[in-house]
């Protein structure tokens, strides 16, 4: 059973046990426009909450993707690196960025659930 939570910076996290799969929301990809490049963190990198973890670039601009929680990067999405446009076609599915081992589950308390995120972007 996974739970999906959201940050105010428009990342989503699908939480399964102590592992979170992280990506950017459909709302974020709409704001960015056509994505042409993503830069993913190295596997094994220790990320602190709110640290710049990945980069997503549209034709016009580069944006940071922040670590929503503190933890170690377990895996990155090679398919996304090869096909950045997946962010536009399937932001909250195939276009996940990385998986992170959640160091401190209490950090999840500050994140939004689906209803709260919908209200945040309304």
């Amino acid at each position: 059973m996974t739970t999906t939570l959201y940050t105010t910076d428009h990342e989503w996290l699908a939480i399964d046990g102590d592992v979170a799969t992280v990506g950017i929301t459909d709302y974020a990809q709409q704001q960015l426009g056509d994505v042409v490049f993503v830069e993913l963190p190295k596997v094994g990198r220790a990320l602190k909450k709110a640290e710049a973890a990945a980069v997503v670039e549209s034709v016009k601009a580069a944006s940071d993707v922040y670590a929503p929680v503190t933890g170690e990067v377990l895996e990155t999405n090679a398919e996304l690196a090869a096909e950045p446009a997946l962010v536009n076609s399937d932001a909250q599915g195939k276009a996940w960025f990385f998986k992170i081992k959640i160091a401190d589950k209490s950090e999840l308390g500050g994140l939004m659930d689906d209803a709260a995120y919908k209200a945040h972007t309304a």
């Binding site: 426009g33 056509d34 042409v36 549209s58 034709v59 016009k60």
Partner: peptide, 12 residues
């Protein structure tokens, strides 16, 4: 207008 609904890539 920086772009229309088609988006920068398609417009280009």
């Amino acid at each position: 207008p920086v772009q229309y609904p088609a988006g920068v890539l398609k417009e280009h």
